[in-house]
Nucleic acid binder design. Structure first.
Lengths: 139, 139
DNA sequence: GTAATTGCTCTAGCGACTAGAGGTTCAACC
DNA sequence: GGTTGAACCTCTAGTCGCTAGAGCAATTAC
């Protein structure tokens, strides 16, 4: 069972080397053993853990959720409901962000389409940005 | 033409007082005149400028874009193309975010639906999060 | 006149990294 | 076995866009 340098893990996971060290410093990754020359050497379990972290971060789970999930993952026979809850919560957040961005998108589009201008002085975009009441939605 | 305290501006724009001072410190708002007792007093133009900033920030324009827009806004007879470009660029960003979030949403949903588990040891969610290859899209 | 509110400056902190300085160790090749 | 160059180490500080708090001064309302 060979082990990995920090660079190997970075390549494997797509997480940058300083970020891996950062994860260690905040307790997401356990401090690995070191070589005689003080360099980190990881095993397969650490690699899997980092993969998990990288993937969950890419899905937008915040660090506290990650910590919770990793803590729960340690108890293989624990019920899975807590993790489901985290995923559902994240889903709700994503839905909210999508709908807000969709409204924003409409507003930006409306801005571009309503322009009948040539100079800044008569620029609809600037007017709309100046006056919240012209918005088609709240934010 | 009466003038406004920083609190008045905060109420008007929804921007918090420390944030208004922060905007001044980074050059988004010009330093206003002060009372004898060193308190800021703003006029209507400053209020409008802050409204503009608040609104553009709510639309997600980054500070450099704001600065560019405000700089351009000073020249009422300048052509409007630069502002249009900023809005179009922002629109592209928003579109990208929406499509990435939509893909993510599908993935989270798939996770929840594929669960046929009870304990963490056999939890699909944890497996999917551990293994990027199970994803239905790239990220 | 006095009390409550609002304002001032300054420093430090947030999350989640990222960049750089200045030095050490490892691995591969000859 | 020696040398070179890539990879590694720690540490500090910077990023963005604010936000919080300390400790004090000014304004406003009654």
């Amino acid at each position: 069972m060979r082990d990995y340098s920090i660079g190997d893990l970075a390549t494997d996971s797509g997480v940058k080397i300083p970020t891996i060290r950062y994860y260690e410093s905040v307790g997401l990754l356990p401090p690995p053993p070191r070589t005689e020359g003080n360099q980190r050497r990881y095993d397969g379990a650490a690699r899997d853990r980092l993969r998990f972290i990288a993937h969950a971060r890419a899905m937008g789970f915040p660090m506290p959720s990650l910590k919770a999930m990793l803590r729960i993952a340690g108890h293989k026979d624990a019920p899975c409901d807590d993790i489901d809850d985290l995923v559902r919560g994240r889903l709700i957040e994503v839905d909210e962000r999508i709908s807000r961005l969709t409204a924003l998108r409409a507003e930006l589009n409306a801005m571009l389409e309503s322009r009948h201008h040539g100079t800044v002085g008569e620029c609809r975009v600037m007017e709309v940005l100046s006056d919240h009441h012209e918005c088609t939605h709240e934010h």
